[in-house]
């Protein structure tokens, strides 16, 4: 298939270009009688090209090794963890106190923190992101679009530790004037900030989906006398729905895995609840807390972060796969 693999014989590379190419006179006077000395067999590619190809393949393979590494590390430590703590407790206990003397290893409080903060984030990012997507693809002129779209993507480029600062130092005190009973650490403020961060993910990918809706469908709708708004909401958005769903799924997965914002501003109290005004500890924030502490590696307490990491990995991976499947079904439907 490639030059390097086409031939099995390995004639030395010196054979390449023998004859007229190398001979300055050859270009003027090609050999008479069509007896060209240049062979077709052998290998044009010197052996080092094969080495290079293998090297490039190895580079591509690093990503596979990364995946294997992640799974191996998480699985190894998690299996050990479940040798020490019952998996049933992990999945059913409603308390998470591995660092206390009365140890409980129920994932639910951490899960609840993760879901509440992510829920707030999606509640912010979905309407904003979707409206922005509609604005960019259906309303804005190409010039405005080419300016606004990259600007929106800046939102996703701000380091999360900076967002964490905004949530804790700026937004929470501000919200405390408006929201009664809001704790200094809470799920609301980091949730909102996280929503701003993931909004461009929704707007950008949804816009792509909306953009991909064939113009003929819009024209058909206009042809029936429908207004622009009716066309957008009755024709365009429904057609793009699985693409939009894919973008929201991806954004939610990003929110679930987000670490620094919640580690800084959501607090560190594992809590089973749904009131975003209270402090929560998310799965990611717990991993950070333990990493910062002085718990000895190799203990059950330390292994909790791998067990929590595994849960996090499974959640985000399945959401990413779901998003991919949704995106594929969208492309297939067009």
């Amino acid at each position: 298939m490639t030059a390097a693999t086409a031939s099995a014989t390995s004639e030395p590379s010196a054979s390449l270009g023998t004859g007229a190419v190398g001979d300055p006179s050859g270009a003027v006077e090609p050999a008479v009688g069509d007896e060209d000395p240049r062979p077709l067999t052998g290998r044009a590619a010197p052996w080092h090209e094969r080495v290079i190809e293998i090297g490039l393949f190895a580079c591509a393979g690093v990503s596979v090794l990364t995946t294997i590494g992640i799974v191996a590390v998480l699985l190894g430590e998690t299996l050990q963890f479940f040798g020490e703590v019952s998996i049933l407790d992990f999945l059913t206990d409603t308390q998470w106190t591995p660092l206390f003397s009365d140890k409980h290893f129920g994932i639910w409080p951490l899960l609840s923190g993760t879901l509440v903060t992510s829920g707030v984030a999606i509640a912010v990012a979905l309407p904003f992101g979707l409206l922005a997507a509609i604005y960019l693809s259906e309303i804005a002129s190409p010039r405005v679009r080419s300016l606004v779209k990259p600007s929106l993507e800046l939102l996703a480029g701000v380091p999360t530790v900076v967002y964490g600062y905004f949530a804790l130092v700026t937004l929470t005190p501000l919200l405390q004037h408006v929201v009664p009973g809001l704790s200094g650490f809470n799920a609301l403020s980091p949730g909102i900030v996280m929503g701003v961060m993931i909004m461009p993910l929704i707007s950008s990918l949804s816009e792509d989906a909306i953009h991909a809706v064939p113009q003929s469908l819009r024209e058909a709708s206009y042809g029936l006398g429908a207004s622009k708004l009716a066309t957008i909401f009755r024709v365009v958005l429904p057609t793009a729905r699985s693409g939009i769903a894919a973008s929201v799924t991806l954004a939610a997965s990003r929110a679930i895995g987000e670490t620094m914002i919640v580690a800084i501003a959501a607090g560190q109290q594992p809590r089973l609840g749904i009131d975003p005004r209270q402090p929560f500890e998310t799965m990611t924030a717990y991993i950070v807390k333990v990493s910062l502490g002085d718990i000895a590696t190799g203990t059950t307490e330390f292994r909790t972060i791998f067990a929590v990491g595994s849960a996090l990995f499974v959640m985000t991976l399945s959401m990413n796969l779901l998003a991919m499947r949704l995106a594929r079904s969208f492309r297939g439907a067009l």
Binding site: S63, V64, T66, T67, G69, I70, A72, V73, L74, G76, E77, L250, S253, R254, I256, G257, E258, T259, T284, I287, V288, S291, I305, F306, G309, L312, F313, T316, L317, M319, N320, L321, A323, M324
Partner: peptide
């Protein structure tokens, strides 16, 4: 595989690096 890796939370990469 690359597409999936792009969606793995960065904190997980931390666990990978640690291990």
């Amino acid at each position: 595989n690359i597409a999936n890796l792009a969606g793995v939370p960065s904190v997980i990469y931390g666990l990978l690096g640690l291990g």
